[in-house]
């Protein structure tokens, strides 16, 4: 008996409700298993798949799929409407920044330099920028300037986004939900100004490949 024949018999046995790959299987298939290491590995995967298949997922509530699509459509239309999304998203960004002020992360100072980060294309990925402020600033202005193939989630087609915020003394975390719209390299600038002081960094963005561990910029 060859591998294909043995596997067909074992598969049929499992499909028929057999509780092991051996019990009830004809002796030739069982003998093949003893002789063939590849088939024993295959058999184990089949058994594991069989057992995991018993771990049932509970059914969601009735109308789940229709409800989700309808809700996503309504809420999604609101998000993509410029009249609402700009104000709401800017407010959300400011709130998020305020909430995250004081988070202590390892980082260097906010200097005039270039940094590199890798993100997956086509989906929103957070890139974190740590702003190390020497003193608290009540009216700091943050400006994000994006290359053409980059955008912030919630700000479709916005190349320059600017808002005022507060900085506390020490490290302030800015989390930017970046979307790289294609597989080519990109970049964005973060510009911080308060009073007559202005500092900026450039962050180079490249598309992540599957074998690359995600990284975040610490500026």
């Amino acid at each position: 008996m060859n591998c294909s024949q043995a596997r067909d018999r074992i598969r049929a046995h499992l499909a028929g409700g057999g509780d092991s790959a051996y019990a009830g299987v004809d002796p030739a298939a069982a003998e093949h298993l003893r002789q063939c290491e590849l088939c024993r590995h295959w058999q184990f995967d089949e058994l594991l798949r069989h057992e995991l298949g018993h771990d049932e997922v509970p059914e969601p509530r009735a109308g789940f799929v229709d409800d989700l699509i309808q809700t996503a459509t309504i809420q999604g239309e609101r998000r993509r409407s410029p009249r609402f999304s700009i104000a709401a998203a800017l407010a959300a960004a400011a709130v998020a920044l305020a909430l995250l002020v004081g988070n202590v992360l390892d980082g260097d100072g906010f200097g005039d330099d270039s940094y590199h980060v890798a993100v997956a294309p086509h989906i929103a990925e957070f890139v974190e920028v740590v702003i190390d402020a020497g003193a608290g600033r009540n009216e700091a202005t943050l400006t994000i300037e994006l290359a053409d193939n980059l955008e912030l989630d919630g700000f479709p087609n916005e190349r320059v986004i600017s808002w005022q915020t507060q900085l506390t003394e020490g490290k302030n975390l800015l989390r930017l939900p970046l979307i790289l719209k294609d597989e080519s390299d990109s970049e964005f600038n973060v510009d911080l100004s308060y009073g007559s002081t202005r500092k900026a960094i450039t962050v180079m963005v490249r598309a992540n490949d599957p074998d690359t561990t995600h990284s975040r910029v610490r500026a």
């Binding site: 509780d19 790959a21 051996y22 024993r40």
Partner: peptide, 19 residues
Amino acid sequence: RPDTWSENEQLSSLLGDAV
């Protein structure tokens, strides 16, 4: 030792417990 566990009729139960 696959030759051992493959012949055990309680394999499914054992594997289910291990999973």
